[in-house]
Structures are given as C-alpha cells and as structure tokens.
C-alpha cells in the first residue's frame, strides 16, 4: 500500500488536528495551557511519546490480536512513558526539572491510544511514524495557541519563562504586554481554557467555510469561463 505522506501530515496538523478536530486530550490541555511555554513543553513531550508509541505499535501490529489489543496498547504506552520519564530524569536532568511535571500527564492522554488504535495498528511503520509526528506537532500547535491566548488574557505575558524550557538563548521570546496587569483569573482556570477553545474552534470553522466558499466560487467562475466561449 503506497502512502500519501503529505495527506497524513496535513491531517495531523490541521484537518484532523487532535484538539481542533478530534477533540481529544482536553484534560492535559486544560491543565497545562496557562502559559504558551507550558503548552510547548507538554506538546514536545507528547510528540516524542506519540512518535515512539506509533512506531512500536505499528511494528508489532501483526502480532496483536483484535480482542486484547486495547490492554496491550495501554501497557506499551504506559511502559514507554515510564521509560521516557526515567531516562530524562537520569540523563537530561535540567530538562526534567521543567518537563517532569508534564510527563506523567501523557499517560492519560487519550490521543496516544487513539492514534495507536486508529492508525498505527493498521498501517506501515513509516506511515505511522509520520502520523505520530504530525499529530504531535498538531497537538503542540494547539497547545501553544490556547496557551498563548490564555496567557495574554490572563496575565498579559507571552512565553513567560521560555528560557527555563529552551535555554537562555530563547529569553527574547518572553514578552510582557501590559506591565502591572492585575490578572484575569478566569482565563487561568479550566473554564477559561474551554472558552478559549470554543472561540478558536468557531474561528477555525468560519475560516474553513470561507475557504470552501471561495473554492466553489472559483470553481464556478472557471466553469463559467470555460463555458462562455462555446456559448458565444
């Protein structure tokens, strides 16, 4: 089966985005997206786990029988997350101090199990790797977007403490929009997360509808242009 990697990629990033289309993984999303930096950290950690879990599950998909596939997937994903947790703690300790908070949350991320079930258990290893990467990046994008909106509205900063996550070279990302901002608590609490998600979803739908309308208009125009010489 030949794979259309481009379509797999755009599916993950936009058309079938974990958050904006599948509406999965909202629990860790609401928990960490109080700042864009936290969103980025969680997104990167999740991308790593999605990529490896998709590869592992796709490579032993022939062995896993239908009836017990879910517990097997859960075991494999939980083991991978634990391994990542220990390895980062031992060998990338500086990163662990920042990401350590998020790693256990990945186990409860149903998007990882979702991709194993929907994609990796049925497709080739390479395609599954691409899917894991694309889904992870799409999730990262969503986390940064929602985290950014909540951070701007809630505490009037953007990418606060980015240098802790990415190193001092990225300190330029840290912006304070309004100094001495009193803070808008609702945005930092989970309800604010749902509000932001709702508005972003509405925006995505509106944009897609507009693009679709424009595409059909253009199609009609082209059809009209093609017809007009024969009509003339």
């Amino acid at each position: 089966m030949s794979e259309d990697y481009r379509s797999v990629f755009t599916d993950g990033l936009w058309r079938n985005n974990v958050v904006f289309a599948q509406m999965l993984a909202l629990c860790p999303l609401m928990a960490v997206t109080t700042t864009a930096t936290n969103g980025l950290g969680m997104g990167l950690a999740t991308t790593g786990v999605l990529l490896t879990s998709n590869i592992v599950i796709a490579s032993c998909r022939d062995l896993i029988s239908q009836e017990v596939r879910i517990p097997v997937f859960v075991l494999l994903i939980a083991a991978l997350v634990s391994l990542a947790d220990m390895a980062i703690n031992a060998w990338l300790h500086e990163l662990y101090k920042v990401l350590g908070l998020f790693i256990p949350l990945i186990v409860v991320n149903c998007a990882v199990l979702g991709r194993a079930e929907v994609f990796a258990s049925k497709r080739a290893v390479l395609a599954s790797a691409v899917d894991g990467l694309a889904m992870g990046l799409g999730y990262t994008l969503a986390l940064i977007l929602i985290g950014g909106c909540r951070e701007i509205l809630g505490s009037a900063t953007l990418f606060a403490h980015a240098s802790l996550l990415l190193g001092d070279g990225f300190a330029f990302l840290e912006t304070t929009l309004i100094p001495k901002y009193k803070g808008f608590l609702l945005m930092l609490l989970p309800p604010g997360g749902f509000l932001v998600l709702g508005f972003l979803l509405a925006g995505k739908r509106a944009a897609e509808r507009r693009w679709q309308r424009r595409a059909t208009n253009r199609g009609e125009a082209r059809a009209g242009a093609q017809q007009s010489p024969s009509a003339a």
Binding site: S65, P71, V72, S82, L83
Partner: peptide, 16 residues
C-alpha cells in the same frame, strides 16, 4: 500475548 507484553514491559521498566 497479554502476559508476554506485560512481562516484557515490566522487564524493560525494571532494567531501565
């Protein structure tokens, strides 16, 4: 299968 996967993953975590 289930037992084998459980054993393998626990072994991997133990080794790690």
């Amino acid at each position: 299968l289930l037992g084998g996967v459980a054993l393998l993953t626990s072994a991997a975590i133990g080794v790690a």
